[in-house]
């Protein structure tokens, strides 16, 4: 079965997130829409403040108390937005799991690795402590933790950053989730360990047929394991397509400029990088029209006057003057 025919595992529509702050409302995510099919990995790319994490924290029901969420998110047929914590807990950690950037602060320091993995298994699957421990061991082996039997009784501080992230992944996988959200899972790791963790995530996705959202600021990270890519800027998706379409033939000037400005390990050039001028916009003072306009080489009056809508079906772009490739 090709991915196009695979059932939609996570369907997000018109999702918006607004934070109430002492300085007034702050709009973090606008009209976010994405569907992720079984067995598919979608990379969600953007810089700090682009709204990529907030979108998925909203889906998980994990936003700060001052957040207001509107729109829809469905796990299979189950709606997620607006559900109570008790209702969400039937899905979270079971069918819908998330791993975070910092594997140290995401683990409980006073519980052993085995206890933390087993906790979720016992709670959700109602099996015995012994059975849960056996399953925890099997999970550690699946995520390629070395010396797994000994690790069960170790505490997080005894593990390296890479090992902690593997433990986080084991916890997320404990109840066989349908959807895994990985929020910058390798950003805190060394480049060699990053490659190992990404290879592991790619393998798990393949073997388990999970749907995966991979949130990252690094276009190189998505190139290795994503099937499709959504590029976000200033709280909105500005481009969506297959990983080949977006990275090899970007249509949005922001995506193209970001790709061009990244120094590449396989680039022998020594001259100045084609940097993007200016700063990402302050969400409180978004320019009228296109948010990328002030930094864009193709900007004109149309762009300053009206914000471009995200158009297209499978291949989408939000730009009045998208790049055309032969």
């Amino acid at each position: 079965m090709s991915q196009d025919e695979a059932p939609v595992a996570l369907d997000i529509e018109q999702l918006s997130v607004v934070f109430d702050t002492p300085d007034g409302p702050l709009s973090a995510v606008n009209d976010f829409a994405l569907e992720i099919r079984r067995g598919e990995c979608v990379g969600v790319v953007g810089e700090s403040g682009a709204g990529k994490s907030q979108s998925f924290l909203a889906v998980m029901g994990l936003l700060a108390a001052n957040a207001r969420v509107s729109g829809q998110a469905r796990l299979g047929t189950e709606p997620l937005i607006g559900r109570s914590i008790a209702e969400l807990n039937q899905f979270r950690g079971v069918k819908l799991s998330m791993i975070f950037q910092d594997p140290m602060t995401s683990l409980t320091p006073h519980m052993t690795v085995g206890e933390q993995i087993a906790e979720s298994i016992i709670h959700h699957l109602k099996i015995s402590a012994d059975a849960a421990r056996a399953r925890a061991l099997a999970l550690l082996e699946q995520v390629q933790v070395t010396d797994a039997p000994r690790r069960l009784d170790q505490y997080p501080h005894e593990l390296s950053g890479g090992m902690r992230q593997r433990v986080m992944i084991a916890i997320a996988l404990a109840c066989d989730p349908e959807v895994l959200i990985a929020d910058e899972p390798t950003t805190a790791l060394d480049v060699t360990i990053q490659a190992q963790i990404l290879a592991l995530l790619a393998k798990l996705k393949r073997e388990r047929g999970m749907a995966m959202a991979l949130i990252t600021h690094d276009l190189g990270v998505v190139a290795g394991i994503a099937d499709r890519v959504a590029v976000m800027y200033a709280g909105r998706v500005v481009e969506l397509g297959t990983v080949h379409e977006v990275l090899k033939a970007p249509k949005h000037p922001y995506t193209a400029a970001l790709l061009a400005s990244m120094p590449r390990i396989d680039d022998t050039g020594t001259g100045p990088l084609p940097a993007i001028g200016g700063q990402p916009p302050n969400p409180r003072r978004l320019p009228p029209g296109c948010a990328f306009g002030p930094r864009c080489e193709r900007v004109d009056e149309t762009c300053r006057a009206a914000r471009p809508a995200l158009t297209g079906h499978e291949r989408r772009v939000a730009c009045h003057h998208p790049l055309e490739r032969p």
Binding site: S160, Q194, A195, L198, A199, G220, A223, G224, L259, I265
Partner: peptide, 24 residues
């Protein structure tokens, strides 16, 4: 180390991931 650095090219990067340095 060089093999572990990701490149933003979907034609190259999946193979590069396979050759990552093991261990810590």
């Amino acid at each position: 180390l060089l093999a572990a650095v990701p490149v933003p090219d979907p034609d190259l990067q999946p193979q590069r991931l396979g050759g990552a340095l093991g261990g810590e």
